[in-house]
Computed example of a mutant assay.
Amino acid sequence: MPSTGTREAPLAIGESRRLSDESAWTVQLNASNPDGAAVVAAENEYLPGPVPGEAFLIGNFSVTVDADALAGQGIDLANEGAAAWAHVWFEYVAADGTSFDVTSGTMCFTNGALYNAGTLYADGTSTGDVCIAVPVDKLPGGLWRVANIQNDNVWISPE
């Protein structure tokens, strides 16, 4: 069991960890903006802002893939490719245990969204933003949670 990156001992901004020993994915939170409405508005004038009582939380993540680990799972990265956004999911878990993801609340995204980072066909890293609408009263004390389909996960402090 890892000693860091758990809910009890989350990673700090700038720290990275593989989701699990068996996982091909390593994640790192580069920056976290709990009030990203101005960023979203500046990049896309057609998106509505957050509703009253809601904030746009933006996390900039780097997600690195290990081709050898994927090969062990039967995936040929060189020929099949892998997109971070299709293999790794992001949510924000409030201190009271409620969670929010990209399908929660008002839709938000930036021009540098992680899902625009493309597919990797060799060992490499995708970097981009994840935007989640979160009730303002749920922001204090919450954590980012990043997981794969096997539910291996890493917890990261947004501060």
Rank of each mutant, 00 (worst) to 15 (best):
S3K: 12
Y121Q: 09
E80M: 04
I58W: 09
T119M: 10
Y121W: 12
P48K: 08
V130P: 00
T127C: 02
D68G: 10
D66G: 04
D35G: 05
A41H: 10
I13L: 15
Y46R: 15
G128A: 06
T64K: 09
G53K: 00
S3E: 14
V63H: 02
G128S: 04
M1H: 13
A24E: 06
T106S: 05
G141P: 12
V146T: 12
M107L: 10
S20I: 06
T103Q: 08
G72Q: 11
W25D: 08
F90P: 01
V63R: 04
E159V: 14
G97N: 04
A41L: 05
L120T: 02
A95Y: 00
A122L: 08
C108V: 05
G53A: 00
A38Y: 05
I156A: 04
V88S: 01
A38I: 01
A122V: 04
E22F: 13
F100P: 04
N116G: 07
L47M: 10
L47Y: 00
S3L: 15
G81H: 09
W144Q: 00
T106K: 00
F61N: 04
E15M: 14
L139G: 03
S157C: 07
V27K: 03
T125Y: 08
V130T: 10
K138G: 05
E45Y: 06
I13Y: 07
W25F: 07
N60K: 06
L77S: 01
E22R: 14
L70Q: 07
T125R: 10
G141Q: 02
T26W: 10
F109I: 06
E43A: 11
A94L: 11
C131V: 15
P34K: 01
S3N: 11
P140K: 07
A117D: 02
A117T: 04
V51N: 14
Y121P: 06
M107H: 11
I13R: 02
A42V: 08
A31Q: 06
G72R: 13
Y46F: 15
C131D: 02
G74A: 08
A41V: 12
G118A: 12
V63P: 07
E45L: 02
S99Y: 13
G141R: 07
D76T: 03
V154N: 06
T103E: 11
G74N: 05
A37Y: 01
A78D: 09
P158H: 11
D137R: 03
P140Y: 03
S23D: 06
L19H: 02
N79S: 11
P48A: 05
S104R: 01
D129R: 07
E159D: 15
S20W: 06
I132A: 05
A78W: 02
I132S: 04
L57C: 01
Y46V: 14
Q28N: 13
N153F: 10
Y92D: 01
W25H: 00
V39Q: 15
L114G: 03
E8Y: 07
M107V: 10
G74V: 03
I58Q: 08
V39D: 12
V154D: 00
L139N: 03
A117L: 09
V27Y: 05
N151S: 13
A67I: 10
D76A: 09
E8W: 02
S32P: 03
N111K: 12
S32W: 03
N148F: 11
G72L: 06
T125F: 11
A31H: 04
T103V: 07
D137K: 05
V93C: 01
S32D: 08
E8V: 14
A55D: 13
W85N: 13
